[in-house]
Structures are given as structure tokens and as C-alpha cells.
Amino acid sequence: MRDELQKRVVKGPDGVEFEVEPLKDYYCEAPPAEHPPAYLKIVEDLFNWARSQSLWILGFGTGCGAIEMRPLMTPRFDAYRYGVQWRPTPRQSNLFIISGYLSVKTLKRVIRSYEQMQNPKYVVGLGSCTINGGMYWDSYNTIKRLDDYLPVDLYIAGCMPRPEALLAGFETLKHIIREGKAEGANLYARNFDWYKANQKKVIHDWDMPDYNW
């Protein structure tokens, strides 16, 4: 456990000393809960339509594939016209694109960011590295199957996939969402222990709280 997460006594600016226990004070201790679709089917369909038409991507690039996301903002591809946009904060985004190989070090940050996103949230694995390790299949430092660590909704294969492939991927993802099949967040909550065990198997220096929200 890192130092700043230890229990300690701090002195406030007004001279009062008080005890801080970061894991208790700053983080939630409850495991994630499942939030099943709560409304009538027709309402849920409307919501799913809205979710599919408003994909907010977390601006977080992990591997070489991240470079393929940038052209999507330019006049040539202009993903905005499909209702896709980039958000700088995990709280507001609902789509996490793992853009390529994921080193163990990055995996930690990815998990933290993913857990801070709010319930209907989707993960897209971009490039062959997220499917089976790709050309890093024998690397000591990257994960091989993204699906073991986070619930993936869609893979876009290729090394590396062109921006057009990404656009096609978004359209497919929209179909999945509209059919109500993109329930990755609930899957994660249901199999939380399994995912945590897998994550801890590769991350040896686990120095963060188990629940990051």
C-alpha cells in the first residue's frame, strides 16, 4: 500500500489536527451494485436510443491504436456527426476505447478510470492486441485478453484498424446498445470478484483501493 493511502494524522490550515484514513474517507467501501434496466420496455428503448446516439468517449489512449482516434475529430472523418465525442473526464464518458496493447502498468490506470465511469458504460477493444495479445503475444509486460479484466462489448480487429473501421465499429456498437445487449457494467458488478482476482493476478504491486469510486 502506498504511503498516501495509509492512515495518518494531518494538521489543517487552522491548526487543528485530525486523523485521515484515505481508504475510508476518500473511497467508497461498497462493491459495485447491479443496476438492472428499471423502467418500462418502451422507456428503456428510448433511453437506449439516446445512449447509442450519444457516445462519449473517455480520452484515454493506451497503445498504438490511440493514434487512430485523432483523425476521427478532423474534417475528413468527423465522428461528431455520428453523435460521438470525447470527454476529458471518466465521470461523464460512457465509452472506453482500449486502443491497443495494454501494459500492466497502464492496466491499473485503466481499471481506476473504468470504475469511475457511471453505469451504462461500454468497452471497445481496438486492435488485435486486445483480443489475443497481437504481436505482443509473448511480451512479459502486456495483458493478452482484455476480456479477462474488463467486460468488453465489441472488438475492432486489425493491426492497426483504420479510422473507417472505427466508425463502422461505432455503428455496430450502436446496434448492440439499441438491442439492450450492452450491459457490461452489470456484468462487471455481477462477476466483480472474478474480475478483481484476474486483475490482481497480473498486477503484482497492487497499491490502490479495491473500489475506485
Partner: peptide, 23 residues
């Protein structure tokens, strides 16, 4: 660029209201 569709704001709004968890 072509820019967002004219009804994009409605989709964003409904989506944000329909998010199931909040902190």
C-alpha cells in the same frame, strides 16, 4: 466539418438523465 446533428443535444440530455448510477 459537418458538425453534430441538430437533435444531438436532446440525445445527450436524455442519455444523461437515463444514467443509472450517480455519486
Amino acid at each position: 466539418r459537418r458538425g453534430i446533428p441538430i437533435w444531438q443535444n436532446y440525445a445527450d440530455l436524455i442519455k444523461n438523465y437515463s444514467i443509472r448510477s450517480s455519486i
